[in-house]
Design a protein around this nucleic acid. Sequence first.
DNA 1: ATAGGGTTAG
Length: 540
Amino acid sequence: MVVHRIIPSRISRLKDPLTRFKPLKTLTTSSSPAPESEPSSSSSSSSSSSDSDSFLVEKICFSLKQGNSNVRNHLIRLNPLAVVEVLYRFRNDLSLGQRFVDQLGFNFPNFKHTSLSLSAMIHILVRSGRLSDAQSCVLRMIRRSGVSRVEIVNSLVSTYSNCGSNDSVFDLLIRTFVQARKLREAYEAFTLLRSKGYTVSIDACNALIGSLVRIGWVELAWGVYQEISRSGVGFMEEAFELMNAMPSKGFSPGVYTYNTVINGLCKHGKYERAKEVFVEMLRSGLSPDSTTYRSLLMEACKKGDAVETENIFSDMRSRDIVPDLVCFSSMMSLFTRSGNLDKALMYFNSVKEAGLIPDNVIYTILIQGYCRKGHLSEAFRVWDEMISKSIKPTVMICNSMIKGYCRSGNASDGESFLEKMILEGFVPDCISYNTLIYGFVKEENMSKAFGLVKKMEEKKQGGLVPDVFTYNSILHGFCRQNQMKEAEVVLRKMIERGVNPDRSTYTSLINGFVSQDNLTEAFRFHDEMLQRGFSPDDKF
DNA sequence: ATAGGGTTAG
């Protein structure tokens, strides 16, 4: 059985840099270092490499090479420039470089580093593969007050070759900025590095682009993207290399980057730009995947552009990319919104042809489409099919059916439907009742409407609280029947109950008074509406 | 340690 002893080099490999850089009480000698005995940059600051400094550097290097693990006595007189000097000496011996860094951090956690000394340590740690330790140095560097991005980048760059470093140091810098949510800084550092001819890996760029896109700084993300694509061959080579290196992951970094940018541009309504990037993607020889197409397709749907949507869709099919349920539901929603139910039904059938199983959202959209037009029998056909596939009707679907009854002028059948569903265990919500209430109001059946308001408040029906939609429906009903006194009572009641009137409330009131030729009252409510911060309806 | 979601009321 082997007993492992804890030796200094083991301590130095402890994962958490903070514990390592903190002096351990049990290990520090009784003569703990007084603050004034700690090395400081001010003590011998002026000369960059005085004779005493270079002598000190020699002594430290010698001691470390001899395997003398405790060079604490020498380190006491150390200044940041000497740190840099020592690390330059060890550029070809990473284990000694690490030992020095660890000794320094272990004995003097409060050493007053400069950007240069931290940079040198970062290079050594990155080369040694100790990324989390390197990252804590980066954090230390970027958190030092009054340090500009230019200084940070310059420090890393000026110590770069003497430390025998490589560009993955810059990846770490960018990633650290990104993780610290300092995206402006990350972007500036990226730009600076690129202007100096250094590269940042595709991965780090993607992390930056993704974060920029997420907070809406699509312009900056676009800038990073352009810089990547402008740098051309090198980057693309790297992309393809990576792609070949990890086929098991199943995605290509090039496609990934484009998808991030395209999706971000779509999300922020910059569809035309997204299309430009898409074209650029095709030109660079990459194949768009379902994510690429979904971003474009969904944005085209949201815009209500049916022609564009169908172009994207057929383009996608021509590449044998199978659209998923989200693509289909987006398209069906587009066509039901514009009243083109034939098209919606066509895509509903395509769902099955594509080998997908329609879910409740797909059924909702189709049922809703029919119900909005009052085509109850079609809606029921779809409903029956849904039930036969053992998909349970959701509140939303039931509400759509209620809407369908009301649209076809049959609010009381809608109420029967609701009651039947309640018996089957369905739990209605405010929208269920509000839809029905508005249906009765349109049929000028105010007593039924009132009855439902009472009903929705009953505990056994769910104990729902009437909201602004409920009150607006009732108030609207009174206004249409020229019962303006009653309408005002409703207004007062809703305010009293803490439900704020909205633009629709005032529109009903104003319209009611106008149709009675009572312009004084109409203007009074018009002013009140403006006072409450609602802009007037287009009608005025 | 990297992108990504669809459906309801006046």
